[in-house]
Amino acid sequence: MTRRRPGMLVGVTVVAALAAGVAPWLPSYPLTLLTQAMIVAILAMSLDVLLGFTGLPSLGHAAYFGVAAYAVAILTTERQSGFVLCLIAGIVTAAVTAALFGLIAIRATGTYFLMITLALGMVVWGLAFRWVSLTKGDNGISGVPRPDLGLPWSLWGPLPFFYFSLACALVAILLLGLIVASPFGMSLKGIRESESRMRILGYNVWLHKYLAFIIAGTFAGFSGVLWAYYNGFVSPVDVQLVTSVEALLMVALGGPGTLLGPAAGAAIIVFLKNFVSVYTKRWLLILGAVYIGVILFAPRGLAGAFHRRSS
């Protein structure tokens, strides 16, 4: 990891610079898609900490994404709260939810972990759907204003909001990159490879997994905060199973355990979904074929495929 970091840094910088440079010439629709890709990429990367680095497949990751989005939606529409408060509240809500759910979920591994996270995710969905006085239920909360950062550019415009999201995504990449490259991140990988060996070596495996769970939830929350601002609308769709599954697919497509792979996976899915569907109603078929192709020919995701060739 440490040896590869310069390459990754260069890659990220060039992609970011390219995106930032091209953005002003893009019409607003592709720009909003690009913004969406940035935000979803943070969600995919946060899930990668669990799935790719710790080996814990979570099917309830939309829960943390969703509670943060709801926190922002409720605070902005009911109390007209500012950006800083919303950001902190959203992230803290997600982290606390993850800390609670982690206590229950971390006991299990493999399929059982999958099932428990799925059930916990459904609990949040149930709350979003049924706690009508707080969440407006099925109708969702609309009218979330874009944040006012006191900058000369209003974030209502697609271009400033894109740069804002890009900056947020870069911060997330940097922080997550530091975490997974740290000794803590290395121990997570160790747990992924062999939990029993790590335990015998004296590592507190449970605590490592628990912390990874909270970190993943926290960054999913960060993504959820941006999502609420981006869409201006939050509904149970954001916390439902499909959203969790989609995040899982992004990670699988991009390559688990590579951080940037899932980010690229997120971007590819966002564009594929919205690009292919313009030309054909059968776009789900194409998306399905892409998934099957990746699983058959690049089981370690796109990043995995590149990596194998280069090493």
Binding site: R4, G7, M8, V10, G11, V14, V15, L260, A264, F306, H307, R309, S310
Partner: peptide, 9 residues
Amino acid sequence: MSRRTIAVL
């Protein structure tokens, strides 16, 4: 530049 970086680009 590694091939990995080229691939990302």
